[in-house]
Design a protein around this nucleic acid. Structure first.
Lengths: 196, 196
DNA sequence: CGCACTAGATCGAGCATTCAATCGAAATCT
DNA sequence: AGATTTCGATTGAATGCTCGATCTAGTGCG
């Protein structure tokens, strides 16, 4: 981080500030319970500035969605370089669990926010590239005999469903311990469900 | 169904009509995208009637929530009478899958609607009685040696997460076939994850 | 006649969005 | 260098509209 002036008067990028504030508010209170005024206040910019960078409120959510999907896509692409289904899937669980602890707001946005309600016709996150890749990993694993013969959709359902549910419970404060505490049990269960 | 008059002029119970319309609209378009005017129109009653039966919009959602939770609670209570974990869990999957096909709106309300956003402080559905019962079933099953030794929270996470994900995929139109087509694969995977 | 229910017009708060004015930093000129 | 122009960035009060909620005047049934 380069401090171009005194820390207290640090010059920030308004667009980023707006998106950061919006992510925080959307995930905490929901899209419809968040007003432009709320974002304005938390991002410490004026109403006009928001509309200078974004066409409207929806466009802020769209930008967040894009960002999150792309960063997920990158991570999953990296993981696909690993050379068997066991390692790949295990790496995804670890990535998601770690992300939940380090960037809970991003994870909340992925796992619990209902995008359909405000992002009109956009294809659901369930159909977005990262999740298509997940089903591909299953197909390849099954073909290679590393995974049990079963419908790949069911395989990815078991996998993502389980992971997402653990994350949701953590984000809702149901789990007292950090997610990595549950990693072994979770992974063992998933692997028993999927392995031949 | 008892027809008290000619079918075309059938006298309906307004409260039920309102709740039916609200359930349909809330699950289709979301709570905030549904106006009282929408409900008024679909239920074919006047604004006055809505406010006669419900304190406000939120109260309609609350009533729906109560109804759904109670009916779920009853079903799960019945299922707990079965005498081992295998049968109990299997019955729950079947119940949920069947409910998804027959009453998709109710299932959407349970699985995909984010109640927190409009039902202020109410404890999340994840913590409501039916889901506590699910964890109890896991605990009992583990104690009895019918399920593998593992954290009961993780067990219920695998179970509910998988089932909910399959339901979500079905409701979003990702699965071409009816859910019962996937039942065997889904159940096999779950049982491999949980059995000793 | 009385009472539970219905109708629909009306209110007003809250909200997203607009816009004319102003700033300020760099570019251009003298 | 200093003055002047330029133009995107920024401001925030004003606008207009949607929508939940209220109110008053019925209506019809027992």
């Amino acid at each position: 981080m380069v401090a171009t002036s005194l820390d207290t008067v640090e010059k920030k990028n308004p667009k980023e500030e707006i998106m950061k504030a919006a992510l925080r508010l959307f995930t905490e209170k929901g899209y419809f319970n968040t007003s432009i005024a709320d974002i304005r206040q938390l991002a410490d910019v004026s109403t006009g500035t928001i509309y200078h960078y974004f066409k409207n409120k929806e466009a802020i959510a769209e930008a967040l969605f894009e960002e999150v999907v792309h960063s997920l896509e990158d991570s999953i692409r990296e993981i696909r370089k690993l050379n068997n289904a066991f390692e790949r899937l295990r790496a995804i669980v670890e990535l998601f669990f770690e992300l939940t602890e380090n960037e809970p707001e991003i994870m909340r946005f992925i796992v619990v926010v209902r995008h359909q309600e405000f992002l009109g016709n956009r294809p659901s996150l369930s159909l977005s590239p990262p999740f298509q890749k997940l089903t591909q990993i299953m197909e390849e694993g099954i073909r290679a005999g590393e995974l049990r013969r079963m419908d790949p959709i069911v395989a990815s359902g078991v996998f993502y469903g389980t992971v997402a549910r653990m994350i949701q419970l953590r984000l809702e404060g149901v789990l007292e311990k950090r997610l990595d505490w549950y990693l072994l049990d979770t992974w063992t269960a998933i692997w028993r469900a999927l392995s031949p």
